[in-house]
Amino acid sequence: MKPKKSPVIRVIGFLALIFIGATLVLGLKITPPDAIQGQMVRIIYIHPPLAWVAFLAYGTTAIASGLYLWKRTRARIWDQLSGASAEVGVVFTGLTLVTGSIWGRPTWGVWWTWDPLLTATALLFVLYLGYLALRKLPGDINQRSKRSAIAALIAFIDVPIVQMSVLWWHSLHQKPTVFNPGQPAQIHGIMADTLLIGFIAFTLVWLWLLFTRLGVIKLEEKIELYGLEVALRERRGEVNKDLVETSQDSHSKTSLSTSSKQGPDSQVLVQK
């Protein structure tokens, strides 16, 4: 009984490979170096798509968590989906930060700057790491799911507040510099096409990863439930056996005690 791999997922995976290949060839070979940024412009073909996927993933987590919390739509699938999506999101956020940092080093001369987008993304990364940690905890599955869903929604609500505060914080210091798209690189023609292909490629990769991961989580949960059932059945079997034994014991005990009780009574009777 092999797990059914949906043909849709297969097609998505196949397309993702083609588009990733296209991004690599276009991004590294065919497109010319930028007039201002030189070779560094090539990072622009992967960095924004990575960030886009990260936000898509967190959006999915938030929606799925909301659907899980809402009693009328509550189903295990929403919890599983939000978990799978958050995990993929954390991977892509990490990569967004790394590629952004690598782009920043030669461009700004530093690995890190407290730019609002960067700061907000870094906080998001840590927030969802916490969420994943919460999900990994042992315990009752429904309790954990409900708590994780609440945590995911809280984290999601925090995003605009973080954005607002870091934007104001930042506006006191310097003007935004990252991805004010017109400014650092004039993107047009084949470069714009490459960026678009990059977006499609990473979105497809995300979809494939999400659904494959979801399949694994579903199956894992089923095995966990199965294991639980087996354990319960064994326990119940033992308990039943125990019960039978103890009831027999208690029977003999009660018979003993009644006989012993009869003892003094009869003695009393005899004395009378």
């Binding site: 690599l24 991004g27 590294l28 070779q39 560094m40 090539r42 990072i43 992967i46 960095h47 990575l50 990569l95 790394v98 590629t99 690598i102 782009w103 080093r105 030669p106």
Partner: peptide, 9 residues
Amino acid sequence: YVEAAYLIT
């Protein structure tokens, strides 16, 4: 830098 970014990603 570009190589590193692509390799890591």
